[in-house]
Computed example of a mutant assay.
Amino acid sequence: MAEEKTFPMTLEGKEKLQAELEELKTNKRAEVIKRIKIARSFGDLSENSEYESAKDEQSFVEGRIKELDHMINYAEIIDSDAIAKNEVAVGKSVTFQEDDDEPETYQIVGAAEADPFEGKISNESPIAKGLIGHKLGEEVTIDTPAGEMSVKIVDVK
């Protein structure tokens, strides 16, 4: 049997996924079932847009539940404290600077909890891949879809 893919993530990220899963199972699932029952009461299902919409939402909710269950079951909690304090790794925040641009800070997290708007980038992203394993003060060349970028790591937390 093939080995299952693990999902590296922080403990905080796993807890967030568990909360989303609980919300979907306890509240959202019941809401969708109620919408389906109401839509069925409108009669002919062949031309019932409310019914179709509710069934589509049910499919999405059940798919997300399955996806979250899988990610949680195969979560690999990253202990960034076990890695040298000055080394970039999953779970740590890194600040880097490209030439004379303003420094940028991101927390490197597993793909399941990535949210660029919150400053969390996936360990599978080109920038994270280019920085992981490097240390504070190092100059690193990162291959990105837009081309190479040279940065200096100015802080690791």
Rank of each mutant, 00 (worst) to 15 (best):
V140N: 01
T95P: 04
E4H: 07
L131Y: 03
V88L: 08
E124T: 14
D79H: 07
N27A: 04
P116N: 10
G133N: 10
E87C: 09
K135D: 02
K157R: 13
L136H: 04
E4T: 04
L11K: 11
K157P: 01
A19Y: 05
E4S: 09
S80E: 13
F42G: 03
S41N: 11
A82L: 13
L17G: 00
T6I: 03
E118N: 15
V154Q: 00
M149R: 13
E98H: 12
E124F: 08
E124G: 06
V88M: 01
I36C: 12
G91W: 11
V151G: 05
A39I: 07
K129N: 02
L131A: 01
M71F: 06
V154D: 08
P116A: 14
E118S: 15
N73R: 03
E15M: 14
L131H: 07
E139C: 06
V109H: 04
R40M: 15
T26Q: 11
S46F: 07
M71W: 02
E76P: 04
G119C: 08
A2L: 06
S93N: 12
T105F: 07
A89S: 13
L45T: 09
D56C: 03
K129M: 12
D100K: 13
E15R: 12
E52P: 02
E62F: 13
E113P: 01
L21S: 02
F7V: 05
D143H: 03
K135S: 10
E102C: 04
L45C: 09
E67K: 15
V88W: 06
P103R: 02
A39F: 13
F96H: 04
Q58R: 09
F96C: 10
D155E: 08
G110R: 05
K85Q: 11
G137E: 09
I36P: 09
E47R: 13
K135R: 10
L136K: 11
A89C: 02
N27H: 06
E52L: 11
S49W: 03
S150R: 14
